[in-house]
C-alpha cells in the first residue's frame, strides 16, 4: 500500500509539472506578453521598460523555473490589472467555488447512487426507465440555459430563492442544482452499469446460494464492489465541476474563482488566468489521487499484495 501510494504520488507530481508548464506556456501563445500589458498603442520604449521589469527578455526556461519556484512557495506573480499578488486575489475567491463544488457533487451523488441502484435491481422496470429518461434528458440540457430557466421560474416567477450573489445559503441552492445535475447522469449510469455487472457476477450467485437475505446481498456484497469505480468518477466529476463553475458563477453572479476567471479574461489579466488554470488542475490532480488511494484501500486486491 505504501509503495502504491508513493508511485501514485510520483505520477501526480509529474502530471502537475506538465500541466504547470502548459499553463505557463499559455502566456506566450499569443505573442509578446510585454505588448499585451502595455496595450496596443504603447511606444517601443514602454514595451522595452516592461520587458525589463517583468524579465521577459530572459530565456523561457529560466522564466519558467522562476515562475515555478514562485508557485511552489505560494507566489504566483502579480496581477496586471490590480497590481496585487495573484495568490491573494485567487485565495479570496476560492472559498465560494470550493463550497459550490462540494455541494454540487454531494447533490449529484445523493441523487444518482440510489437511482442507479434502484434501476439496476429492477432492470426495465418503471424506475429504470424513468432513471434512464432523466439521464438522457439531463445530459442534453445545457447548464447555462438551465440556470437561466431556473432563475425565471424560481426567482422571478415564484420568488422562492435569490437569483444572484452569495450572501446566504439560499444563494447556493440554484447554483448547486445547476452544477450538480450535469454530473448526475454519468454517475447514475455508472452506478447502474456497475450494479448490473456485479449482480450477474458469480459471487453474487454464491451469496444467493448461501441463502443470504436480499438486503445483505445488495448492500454488503454488490454495492461494495460496484461503488469502487463510482468513487473515481465522482473525483473526476468534482474536478470538472470546479473547472466548469465559471459558467454557473457567471449566471448567478457568484463571486468565486470561476467568476474571477471570466473577469480576468475580459481584462486580459494573464497571470491570474495562468494561476487559475494551475489551481483548478491541481484540484483535479488532488481529487483523483485521493480517489485512487480510497479505491486501493477499499479493494483488497490492491491493498493486500
Amino acid at each position: 500500500m505504501l509503495l502504491f501510494t508513493l508511485k501514485r504520488f510520483g505520477l501526480a507530481i509529474c502530471v502537475a509539472l506538465t500541466v504547470s508548464a502548459i499553463s505557463f506556456g499559455l502566456l506566450y501563445m499569443a505573442g509578446d506578453p510585454a505588448v499585451a500589458i502595455a496595450g496596443e498603442n504603447a511606444s517601443s520604449v514602454d514595451i522595452a521598460a516592461i520587458t525589463a521589469q517583468y524579465g521577459f527578455d530572459r530565456p523561457l526556461l529560466v522564466q519558467y523555473a522562476d515562475w515555478l519556484g514562485g508557485a511552489l512557495t505560494g507566489d504566483l506573480g502579480r496581477s496586471w490589472y490590480f497590481d496585487l499578488p495573484v495568490t491573494q486575489i485567487v485565495t479570496d475567491r476560492l472559498g465560494v467555488t470550493v463550497t459550490l463544488g462540494a455541494l454540487a457533487i454531494s447533490f449529484a451523488l445523493i441523487l444518482a447512487i440510489p437511482m442507479g441502484v434502484a434501476a439496476a435491481v429492477r432492470p426495465n422496470s418503471l424506475i429504470d426507465r424513468a432513471a434512464l429518461f432523466l439521464s438522457v434528458v439531463g445530459q442534453a440540457i445545457p447548464s447555462f440555459w438551465f440556470g437561466l430557466i431556473l432563475i425565471v421560474v424560481f426567482s422571478i416567477k415564484l420568488g422562492l430563492v435569490p437569483a444572484s450573489g452569495s450572501a446566504s445559503w439560499k444563494h447556493f441552492i440554484l447554483p448547486t442544482v445547476v452544477l450538480g445535475y450535469y454530473a448526475t447522469p454519468a454517475i447514475m449510469r455508472l452506478t447502474r452499469a456497475g450494479m448490473l455487472e456485479v449482480l450477474s457476477a458469480d459471487y453474487i450467485r454464491t451469496a444467493r446460494a448461501k441463502g443470504l437475505d436480499t438486503r445483505k446481498i445488495l448492500f454488503k456484497h454488490a454495492l461494495r464492489n460496484a461503488i469502487i469505480p463510482v468513487i473515481s468518477l465522482a473525483a473526476v466529476q468534482m474536478g470538472f465541476m470546479l473547472g466548469g463553475s465559471i459558467v454557473v458563477e457567471s449566471i448567478f453572479a457568484l463571486h468565486g474563482a470561476g467568476y474571477l476567471a471570466w473577469e480576468s479574461i475580459s481584462r486580459n489579466d494573464l497571470p491570474v488566468m495562468q494561476a487559475l488554470i494551475l489551481v483548478f488542475s491541481m484540484f483535479y490532480i488532488l481529487f483523483t489521487f485521493l480517489a485512487d488511494l480510497l479505491n486501493a484501500w477499499m479493494d483488497p486486491r490492491l491493498r493486500v499484495g
Partner: peptide, 23 residues
C-alpha cells in the same frame, strides 16, 4: 496514459476561454 492524465487535469472551459481570448 500520461498524456491522457495531463489532458484530463486541464480545465476544458477555462483553457478554451483563454485560448479564444488570446486568438
Amino acid at each position: 496514459t500520461f498524456l491522457i492524465n495531463v489532458r484530463l487535469a486541464m480545465p476544458v472551459v477555462l483553457v478554451a476561454l483563454a485560448v479564444v481570448a488570446l486568438f
